[in-house]
Amino acid sequence: MSAGLSASGLGFRYGAKEALKDVSFDIPKARFCALLGPNGAGKSTLFSLLTRLLVSRQGRIEMAGHDLGADPGKALAKLGVVFQQPTLDLDLSVRQNLRYFAALHGLSGAAVEIRITECLARLDMAERADERVRSLNGGHRRRTEIARSLLHDPEVLLLDEPTVGLDAATRATITEHVHALANQGLTVLWATHLTDEIRDTDHLLILHRGQIVADGAAADIRGERSLEDHFLNVTGANA
């Protein structure tokens, strides 16, 4: 057991359309794993299954040693999620927002205030704690979302295209921050369709038409080619 994040034999269909076919992977603890796939590859469906917004009768998901199907409460308690969609209330301050999210995990009191300060500091956001979310720029809002996902001290962190709509510099900063989190012991699954966010040392999964078509170290998968070329080749986008 890796105690990171693993899936075996996952399948899912929307009516007649098969969105995921026999998806299996195993991400060891404290690894940064990129999930690369073109639009429509099934990334969102996979995320919905991993966050239990959807449940499949096929396959099994294990999160920090807990079976998501059999023991969702314990598994979800170990999971932090950054959704593609914003979750922050624009009219509340950063701290008020984070307090609400901590409470959704049953946490309250003085310990939470300390934890909020810590999580914001980890993302260089400490001095913005009392600003209204509406006044923050896109990059800072994303960082707040990431700080939010860390409040309950999760062991596994899922991010669904967290850099969508951000400029290149901000994208680089956020990618850097999350790599640092993996180095500190978090298991990270980062969904993207942008190859420049992935490092050679990262674990890489390529999802295409609902199936995993590559699984391993990014450097090994791309070989001599650039990752972008390899990706386009595998997914047939340059054909």
Binding site: T51, G73, V81, Q84, P86, F101, L104, H105
Partner: peptide
């Protein structure tokens, strides 16, 4: 649900 805050609510570990 379209904005994500409902998703967040539903990923809370409570029933």
């Amino acid at each position: 649900r379209e904005m994500g805050s409902m998703r967040l609510l539903l990923t809370s570990p409570f029933p």
